[in-house]
Design a protein around this nucleic acid. Structure first.
Lengths: 208, 208
DNA sequence: TGGTTTTTGTGATTTTTTTCACAAAACACC
DNA sequence: GGTGTTTTGTGAAAAAAATCACAAAAACCA
């Protein structure tokens, strides 16, 4: 199966739209509705679904419940997903306190930092010394981590994790990571996201 | 000119790579080096540059200083960029305290919230009541905003801003916004980014 | 100075992604 | 049960993005 990040993102958006539709009482949905909801073409919706063997009913569209179940399964939304945070700065802390994770069964199990002032083994999400990172990962079979350290530390932290067997990383530090083949990395660069908007706003202005 | 978000993202990555190269003392760079740095093809690099009229020297590559200047101009990195934050929760607060913004000349000028407990007109970044949002935008000619409110408030906040003349938005709330033509919106969904990694980690596991 | 090498810039080609378009299935209504 | 309408699922077509490939310019060297 050949799935791109774009495709996965769309599936996520469908799910989001479905959620809204469900809460407003709908029972079934057509590819057309979903397409409109996310600003795409209805064939796109059907193609995306067919990639994952999700099928509807000719003339009847898709059952919202059934469809959401299938998407939930796809995203493993049914099982608790353990994750750790490395770097307890602004972003790290914000993620640790992020309310909606619980609802989506994302569980931040522990956090790590180099600053002894931040250590706190008794907290709801314990903050542990960086020295324990590798042991923690192997011992607790952690597969996923969030990197939220300053840019100069990011690669080093990543290499540690990677060596300890991490399989997926969301990197919030403002540098792209050099990554081995067998670890999936998703770079989320807040500065870049702001600069992109800035760029397009300016570009639009110039056109007018 | 036909520029996509992907293209802009690559330009940003080049800039990042150039920064590293400059600090390690390099003076010039070839399309090949940049391609390797971001995992792309060297023609891609040259195509991207040519789109923006950035040219190098046959056999001599590109001067790092000159190139960075051109990219900085492209991203308006030379002038202070004012922005406001709406929603002083975990994420909003984290962004307000984000150190590297200053270095990149991104200035968060004010923040807004509905919770009176959070108001603070004297703070370095004043936190103002939501009622003042529209006036503030028009009065101070704010062009860009960050939305960091809970999902149920996001669209409403956006519509307010949009009506007040905002031109670009980075939306950190976990819902995609319905947006008018003349406002550029960049959705950054933290949950989605985590779920994407989760998906691909699982997908990789299944393949083995 | 003339030949050799290197690297850009860009048309041509390939690959990927999106959209079109239509047959086949399902339902509704008479 | 037949006829008409709606919507899926998917090959075919179009559009967009990435890669190839090569002429032309520049630097080097002898």
């Amino acid at each position: 199966m050949k799935t791109t990040k774009n495709c996965i993102t769309r599936l996520y958006q469908y799910r989001e739209a479905l959620y809204r539709m469900k809460t407003s009482g709908c029972q079934k949905v057509f590819s057309n509705d979903l397409a409109e909801a996310i600003g795409a073409n209805s064939s796109q919706v059907r193609k995306d679904f067919s990639l994952f063997g999700i099928s509807g009913n000719k003339r009847g569209g898709y059952g919202i419940h059934e469809l959401m179940d299938q998407l939930d399964t796809l995203f493993n939304k049914n099982q608790m997903r353990k994750i750790i945070v490395v770097g307890v700065g602004n972003i790290g802390r914000a993620l640790m306190n992020y309310e909606s994770f619980a609802r989506e069964l994302i569980l931040i199990e522990a956090a790590f930092d180099i600053d002894p002032m931040k250590y706190d083994r008794e907290a709801l999400i314990p903050v542990l010394p960086m020295e324990e990172l590798q042991d923690y990962i192997t011992h607790n079979k952690i597969k996923m981590a969030i990197i939220a350290v300053p840019y100069f530390a990011a690669q080093q932290v990543f290499d540690l994790m990677s060596a300890a067997g991490i399989r997926g990383v969301v990197n919030f530090s403002p540098v792209s990571l050099k990554t081995p083949e067998d670890v999936f990395v998703n770079n989320v660069n807040v500065q870049l996201e702001i600069d992109i908007v800035h760029y397009f706003v300016n570009a639009l202005d110039k056109k007018e």
